[in-house]
């Protein structure tokens, strides 16, 4: 549990710093302050066990990417920030579940598998993302159309999945 808590706060600090530094370097002080406030709010929410606070912070940090890209800040900062945000959100969930469960049976094994899965996801995600960033494809109307259709398809899948749930 201590490992998860440390990982949560470390990743939260990392995502706050990376987004914040990115905006500061770019000269967007207002966004940097907003970002640091958001990080502080998430930490407080976690400490006070406000699940909605964590959810809101995660959503807003993800939207920070869009703002960052819009403002033209360094992509590397944003990439590190999004990875750290994912880790923070994942750790927050794990900690909440561990607190809900009075006892964890086979805790070491569970933690190891969880961290391995998360690490794998991050490595693949960051790798693919870096690859995509270095891929030079003309983002034509045709590509946008294909992706748009894919999005509609994905949305219909998500809706049907949620209905099943």
């Amino acid at each position: 549990m201590k490992l998860q808590v440390s990982l949560f706060y470390t990743s939260l600090a990392l995502c706050t710093l990376s987004f914040g530094v990115a905006f500061l370097v770019h000269g967007s002080l207002a966004f940097a302050v907003l970002n640091f406030s958001l990080g502080a709010f998430w930490a407080i929410s976690h400490w006070r066990e406000w699940s909605w606070g964590g959810l809101l912070s995660f959503g807003l940090f993800c939207l920070m990417i869009a703002f960052g890209v819009w403002r033209g800040v360094g992509v590397l900062w944003l990439l590190v920030g999004i990875a750290a945000t994912i880790v923070a959100w994942d750790m927050a969930r794990w900690i909440a579940q561990a607190k809900r469960a009075g006892r964890i049976i086979g805790g070491d094994k569970l933690i190891r598998h969880h961290l391995l899965r998360l690490g794998g996801v991050l490595v693949i995600g960051l790798g693919l993302s870096t690859l995509a960033l270095n891929l030079k494809l003309a983002f034509t109307f045709g590509w946008a159309l294909i992706l748009g259709l894919l999005m509609i398809l994905a949305l219909s899948r998500v809706i049907s999945f949620l209905r099943e749930q």
């Binding site: 944003l78 990439l79 999004i82 994942d90």
Partner: peptide
């Protein structure tokens, strides 16, 4: 922006 969404998609 599309490339930056990839880690979330993989997750």
């Amino acid at each position: 922006l599309l490339a930056l969404v990839v880690p979330l998609l993989i997750y």
